[in-house]
């Protein structure tokens, strides 16, 4: 593993994972409404389809269908500070409340799906078997292009390739990606084409289990995608863009293996 890769990982630990672990409860309370593009993508699947939700957060997309099967994963941990969590993301003090990842705890409530703790760049899934995958607002947290392309490649590799149609499953497996757009001049943040693509974005904590830290501001790292960049990353990762678009300050693409 090269130094850039290690640095990228350490950087994201501090500027993405540790922050989510502090804002999980509040963040989750603001993330409940599925976006139409994602809703449509999931609703188009045949009963019995098997897929992945990489970076599932609180698992809000698991509630859309109960006749498909999603293995959802996220690596974000509890409201604990990082020194209370071991490298598995598991709390050292084994009180029931904190034993598993906080966002994953929300995600486990949706049947028939399953939730696990995993990292997008070390996914524990066999290749070429899944009918679909979604990764919503996740790869923009990776801090180098190489890591973002690696993540897209890792997800595409889990998909059933072309020419392996299965009963009731249509053609090749497809993945849906959503990333935050640089072009969002009408949003609250107001960024546009001339702005810096790598941003530290503040999150002001409004509610917390313990009531601690209310009003405190945390910063998360984001890479804001410019028009066409997501598609370039997909092609660089050996994929093929099926369709793509812009929705609510985000770029999205549906992709499959080439």
């Amino acid at each position: 593993m090269d130094n850039d890769h290690i640095r990228g990982e350490e950087y994201e630990q501090t500027n993405v994972h540790n922050v989510y672990s502090k804002i999980a409860t509040h963040f989750s309370s603001t993330r409940y409404k599925p976006w139409p593009v994602i809703d449509d993508f999931l609703r188009s699947l045949t009963t019995g389809s098997i897929g992945l939700d990489i970076g599932c957060g609180n698992g809000k997309y698991l509630a859309i269908r109960d006749d498909i099967y999603i293995v959802a994963s996220d690596r974000h941990v509890t409201n604990l500070t990082s020194n209370e969590i071991d490298y598995f993301g598991v709390a050292k003090s084994l009180t029931r409340k904190y034993r598993s990842s906080e966002l994953i705890e929300f995600a486990t409530q949706h049947e028939p799906h399953s939730a696990i703790v995993a990292d997008i760049l070390s996914l524990p899934h066999p290749g070429a078997v899944f009918d679909f995958a979604i990764s919503i607002a996740v790869i923009h947290h990776l801090s180098t292009r190489e890591r973002r392309v690696d993540a897209v490649r890792a997800i595409l590799n889990t998909l059933r390739p072309c020419g392996e149609d299965r009963e009731g499953s249509g053609s090749a497996g497809q993945a849906l990606f959503f990333v935050w757009a640089l072009e969002q001049k009408n949003s609250r943040r107001g960024w546009d084409v001339d702005d810096e693509q790598d941003q530290m974005v503040p999150w002001v904590l409004k509610a917390d289990k313990s009531g601690d830290g209310v009003g405190k501001t945390y910063h998360r790292y984001y890479h804001l995608y410019r028009r066409g960049e997501l598609e370039e990353d997909i092609v660089a990762a050996g994929g093929e863009v099926v369709r793509s678009g812009y929705d609510r300050d985000n770029w999205w693409s549906v992709a499959r293996r080439r």
């Binding site: 593993m1 490298y87 598995f88 598991v90 598993s100 990842s101 696990i116 703790v117």
Partner: peptide, 18 residues
């Protein structure tokens, strides 16, 4: 060995295996 606690499997790797 990947631990399963309260039904949730944890697949995060220690740094030397990444």
């Amino acid at each position: 060995e990947y631990p399963i606690k309260e039904g949730v499997g944890n697949f995060l790797l220690p740094p030397h295996l990444v």
